[in-house]
């Protein structure tokens, strides 16, 4: 494995943990390298990634790597097959998960997330997150949005790089934390954005 690829995983993984966006063993991430996928090892801690925690396997073809890869490998593969993504970050942003429990979409009210994300859909499936149904549903949604929430579970963000997918993830969580703070303050919202009605229709 190229040392630079490990460095990238290690830094983003550490940042996700430090930012409270994953628990000790939660979340995962991957990149697409041509027809190969590099993904976090099953059970590895994002905040303490070692070189052997990165597993390389085929984008379509199985090999021994699948025995070691994250349980959500199927989702990652499906996303790569159905979208232009070259990197995926899956994490458990707490405020965003809280909002996902009562909403079908999260429409940011802060400037940064309005600007970058417009709207984040919330999806759910009866089956577990590693199921083919969920993988397909998620990938179809990510063909139109760069970050999607799984209700009560967490976010999946795509980008050309891990850096970019992490950017969307942290922007969503920041936005949700601001929304929580605004609810606590509980004062009338003063709209400051032009054509803001467009965000909900994004």
């Amino acid at each position: 494995m190229d040392e630079r690829i490990y460095e990238m995983f290690r830094e983003i993984g550490r940042d996700l943990y430090v930012a409270d966006m994953v628990s000790s063993h939660g979340g995962n991430m991957s990149i697409r390298l041509g027809d190969r996928v590099v993904i976090k090892r099953r059970g590895a801690m994002l905040g303490r990634l070692k070189p052997h925690d990165l597993i390389e396997t085929g984008l379509e073809k199985n090999d021994s790597g699948v025995a070691l890869a994250s349980t959500e490998l199927l989702i990652h593969r499906t996303i790569y097959q159905m979208t232009p993504a070259l990197a995926i970050v899956h994490c458990h942003p707490r405020s965003a998960i809280a909002f996902s429990l009562s909403r079908d979409e999260i429409v940011p009210i802060d400037n940064e997330a309005s600007y970058l994300l417009k709207k984040v859909p919330v999806i759910w499936e009866e089956f577990a997150s590693g199921s083919p149904e969920m993988a397909k549903h998620l990938a179809e949604t990510l063909a139109q949005y760069k970050i999607v929430m799984l209700r009560g579970h967490g976010s999946f963000a795509i980008g050309q790089t891990l850096d970019e997918a992490f950017h969307w993830s942290s922007t969503l969580e920041e936005s949700c934390q601001i929304a929580v703070a605004a609810k606590i303050i509980n004062e009338p919202f003063l709209e400051y954005r032009g054509m803001s009605e467009g965000y909900a229709k994004w």
């Binding site: 190229d2 630079r4 690829i5 990149i31 697409r32 390298l33 041509g34 190969r36 232009p84 070259l86 980008g159 050309q160 790089t161 850096d163 970019e164 950017h167």
Partner: peptide, 28 residues
């Protein structure tokens, strides 16, 4: 990608996996 950091900077000397970026940008 290799110089300006749009959307994010990648290693300009990296070889493995570079085809994915090239193909995405050619298609785009």
């Amino acid at each position: 990608l290799e110089v300006l950091g749009l959307p994010k900077l990648i290693d300009r000397f990296q070889v493995q996996g570079k085809s994915s970026f090239v193909i995405l940008h050619q298609n785009s």
